[in-house]
Amino acid sequence: MEIKNMFDKQAFEEIQQRLQNLTIHHQRQWGKMTAAQMLTHCKEAYKVPLTSKPLKRNPISYIGWLFRPILYNSKPYRQSLPTAPNFIVKDERDFEKEKAEMLSITKAFHEKGAAGVGDKVHPFFGKMTAEQWGKSMWKHLDHHLRQFGA
């Protein structure tokens, strides 16, 4: 699997098109989330590198750097992996609202650019380079778009 980088114009435009093509009628291939919940989940993940507020780190996260390569290596994420509690979405969401916000937040991430997020610390995986952020954010969103066949 080729891992792309959300800071790359072509990769960003491809993700935007896939998001545009996603509809409420897309059925999940695995997992428990609806399409709207998935968009909310992904939106929350994008807020991590976009926020200026440092996020609280769990004590076990200080060994998280050991597992960091799984975020951006070429091996696809397994289906139905456990989700961090603060990223679980169980309530109903408005699909069109979540889709519009997801398109907006991915655009903000791309436009902020590598220089804008390269100094952010992941709450579990620790300090990440801009390349690691760009690839990990693409890989996570790609995983969930594939979950819904988009």
Rank of each mutant, 00 (worst) to 15 (best):
N73G: 04
A130Q: 04
S136N: 14
V89G: 09
L71C: 09
R28N: 14
W65C: 00
K4Q: 03
D94T: 15
L55C: 08
L39E: 03
D8T: 03
I63A: 15
G149P: 05
F109T: 01
G64M: 03
A150P: 05
L19W: 02
Q147F: 08
E98H: 06
M33Y: 08
K56C: 07
W65N: 04
Q27L: 06
T23R: 14
E13P: 10
D119R: 08
L50M: 11
A130P: 05
P59I: 10
K32H: 09
T83R: 05
K75A: 09
M1N: 03
G118K: 00
G113K: 09
A150V: 15
R28K: 15
M128C: 13
T83L: 14
S61N: 07
P49T: 03
Q20K: 14
L39F: 10
L81M: 15
W138P: 02
C42H: 02
H26F: 07
E96G: 06
K127A: 15
L55E: 15
T106G: 04
L103F: 07
L39T: 06
T106E: 05
Y62L: 09
A11Y: 01
Q16M: 15
E96I: 07
E14I: 05
K139Y: 07
K53R: 14
M38T: 13
G116F: 01
Y72A: 01
G116V: 00
P54M: 12
A150I: 10
D91M: 05
N86R: 06
F87I: 03
A115K: 12
K135G: 14
Y77T: 02
G134K: 13
S52M: 06
K127H: 12
E14L: 14
H41T: 11
T34N: 03
K97S: 11
K43C: 11
A150R: 02
